Amino acid sequence: MHSIYSRVNNVSATLSSCLMVLLAAIAISSLFMGANPEGTLDIAQLRVFTGQTRRWPHQRQEFGFVNFNVTADLTPLFHWNTKQLFLYLEAEYTNAKGVKNEVVIWDRIVRRKEDAVINVVGKNKYPFREISSKFKNSEPAHFSLKYNLMPYVGALTFGEAARTETALDFPEAKEAVS
């Protein structure tokens, strides 16, 4: 005779196995739902100013200020397994020392398909500064709008929705007005 404990254990093991198989099937099927969102990214203005940092008040550092226009239709990315999208505008450049930098300067979270048509005229949300304190002799910067699709079940999916066609040179730094 089987005890009640062993019967409950067998039923719960069977149900949890079926649930894991179902979740694996959902995750695998989401990988085949590829979409190619389209968008445009225009950098209206890139300015560089010299200023003081909070961390080292006696050290001067160059800060970049970017004005941009983003237009993108991300509705193809939303399907039954999409929880939310994380969008971010990234600047990619190589500094004078040969180090490749990828800096996030703006981001947004999109939770609904109705909000997935993006039309933003804005400026950088986060500080854009060079770790070596000067943008001088850096290679031109490429800007791109990237996304991270977060599903209910499965792996995160990364992609790129828009990219600037030409790289932008960093202008000479101007002294910040206090």
Rank of each mutant, 00 (worst) to 15 (best):
Glu90Cys: 04
Thr53Ile: 02
Asn10Tyr: 11
Ala24Trp: 08
Glu114Thr: 09
Ser138Arg: 04
Glu114His: 02
Pro127Asn: 07
Leu85Gln: 02
Pro140Phe: 10
Glu62Pro: 06
Val48Phe: 06
Ile105Asn: 02
Asp42Asn: 14
Asn95Pro: 12
Phe49Asp: 13
Trp106Cys: 01
Arg55Cys: 11
Trp56Phe: 12
Trp56Asn: 10
Thr50Ser: 15
Val117Glu: 06
Val120Lys: 06
Leu22Val: 12
Ser16Trp: 13
Glu139His: 13
Thr164Tyr: 10
Gly122Arg: 01
Val103Gln: 09
Glu102Tyr: 13
Leu19Asp: 11
Ala72Ile: 00
Asn95Gly: 10
Glu139Met: 05
Tyr93Trp: 11
Leu156Tyr: 06
Glu114Leu: 07
His58Lys: 14
Ile118Asp: 00
Gln84Ile: 01
Leu87His: 00
Val153Asp: 05
Gln45Tyr: 03
Phe78Tyr: 13
Trp106Phe: 07
Gly159Gln: 03
Thr40Ile: 06
Arg111Ala: 13
Ile105Gly: 02
Leu85Trp: 00
His58Val: 10
Val120Ser: 03
Leu145Arg: 01
Leu149Met: 08
Val48Ala: 02
Ser12His: 05
Leu46Gln: 10
Arg111Ile: 05
Arg112Tyr: 10
Asn95Leu: 13
Val110Ala: 03
Val104Met: 14
Val104Gly: 10
Thr82Leu: 05
Pro171Arg: 11
Gly34Asp: 14
Leu149His: 10
Phe135Ile: 01
Leu168Cys: 04
Gly159Asp: 07
Gln45Asp: 11
Arg112Trp: 06
Tyr126His: 05
Gly98Thr: 12
Met150Tyr: 08
Asp73Phe: 00
Lys125Asn: 11
Glu165Val: 05
